[in-house]
Amino acid sequence: MDPIRRSLLGQLARLSAGAAMVPWSSVASAGINDQPARREGDPTKRYGMLIDLRQCIGCQACTVSCHIENDAPLGNFRTIVSQFEVEEENTGEVATFMLPRLCNHCDNPPCVPVCPVQATYQRQDGIVVVDNDRCVGCAYCVNACPYDARFINEKTQTADKCTFCAHRLEAGLLPACVESCVGGARMIGNMRDPDSEISRMMEKHRDELMVLQPEKGTVPQVFYLGMDERFTQRPEAEPGIWDVINEAGKELGYEFGH
């Protein structure tokens, strides 16, 4: 459909529908679903992470160390490195693209205001955490997160996610994924301190840094250096994994495509 016709259709729709839309938009902006006040944590700090993709070799050491440190159930991940095979159509050259994923500890986290019992909240140092004793397991936050950073932990039956290893930070340690990163690709620090390593790196590479799905308005605080812009969105890729099922119909695991 040509653009002029499309925009005409849109205008028509708005003309006919505008009147009906008014009450809904006013309800939506009545303060419901706004960010609540942050609580706990050190207000002088703002933790963030910078991932230098040029250094990532996709070894999944972060995935494994996080899994061990945080005791996530099999099949669920607080962090994982997605890997893609990128083939240049003209030259036939093949390269691998690695994309470590974790909670973005957004400045406008969509998962926080939806929580009906305030079990998930943002600390004053920016870390988004879940109080497992309070969480009712409604999974509203799991659906609200556009990054699939949350899951329902089948052992605790509550919401689970990356906490930047807050328990380790408080003990003066680095998060498990940062500590174990072979290439030193992951960097965490206080972005309020202009002399911290992360602040200096961000200053140096300000124009090259990218975040995931910036258009969602979530203001992610995990920054990628050496990012291919296509991968900030849901990848336009061939899905590469299939479930393998044996003769008895039991699942054996994943198999890669081709």
Binding site: Q83, F84, F256
Partner: peptide, 17 residues
């Protein structure tokens, strides 16, 4: 243009039953 194929991604389940 290039062709992208997923090699490693986690499987995400549904949250509301």
């Amino acid at each position: 243009m290039s062709l992208v194929t997923e090699v490693v991604v986690p499987r995400y389940g549904i949250a509301w039953y």
